[in-house]
Simulated assay, not measured.
Amino acid sequence: MGLYISSPRSAEEIDRRFSEPGLLVVNPERKVQIIDISNAPFARPDLEGIMEAVKFIQEKQYPIRGTLA
């Protein structure tokens, strides 16, 4: 999924590797419409903003972006 993997900073934090935050929004055609991947725990996406974006995408039939190689 392309998530960043981190080791714990201390034994109090957690006892194993873990993934940093990531969010994938899949549209009704089962294609990934939005990707938000972070390499830090405090850079999580704003879920209210994401929900507004999803509504906009659905209402305006907004295309998937960033597909040029």
Rank of each mutant, 00 (worst) to 15 (best):
Q58K: 09
E29V: 11
V25L: 05
F18G: 03
P8L: 06
I14S: 08
E12L: 13
P8W: 09
M1G: 10
I14Q: 03
Y62T: 00
L23H: 04
P21T: 02
R17H: 08
R65D: 10
R9Y: 09
S10K: 02
A69C: 15
E59M: 01
E13P: 06
R9F: 00
S7N: 07
P28A: 01
L24D: 09
K60S: 11
P41H: 06
P8Q: 06
Y4L: 14
L68G: 07
F18V: 01
R16E: 07
L3V: 12
L23E: 10
N39R: 08
Q33P: 08
P63D: 09
Y4T: 14
E20Y: 15
I35A: 15
N39T: 05
A69L: 14
S38F: 01
I57Q: 02
E48M: 10
E12H: 13
V26T: 05
R16Y: 05
F18L: 08
R65H: 14
S38A: 08
I64V: 04
A40R: 15
E20T: 13
Q61A: 12
D36A: 14
F56C: 03
A53N: 00
S10F: 04
S10G: 10
V54L: 07
K60D: 06
F56H: 03
L3K: 05
I57C: 00
K55A: 02
I50W: 00
I37Q: 07
G22K: 02
M1P: 09
S7C: 06
Q61F: 14
A53L: 12
V54T: 09
T67L: 14
S38M: 02
I14C: 14
A53V: 01
Q58C: 12
A69V: 15
L24R: 12
A53K: 04
P63G: 06
A11W: 11
T67D: 02
R65Q: 15
I34Q: 06
N39C: 11
A69P: 13
F42Y: 13
D46S: 04
A11K: 12
P63L: 08
I35H: 15
P41D: 12
I64T: 01
N27R: 04
D46H: 03
M1Y: 08
P28K: 00
L47Y: 06
V32E: 00
N27F: 01
G2Y: 13
K60I: 15
A69R: 15
P21C: 01
L23Y: 05
Q61L: 07
D46N: 06
S19M: 13
G66I: 06
T67N: 09
I50L: 07
L23A: 06
M1Q: 09
R16N: 11
E12I: 10
G2T: 14
F18D: 03
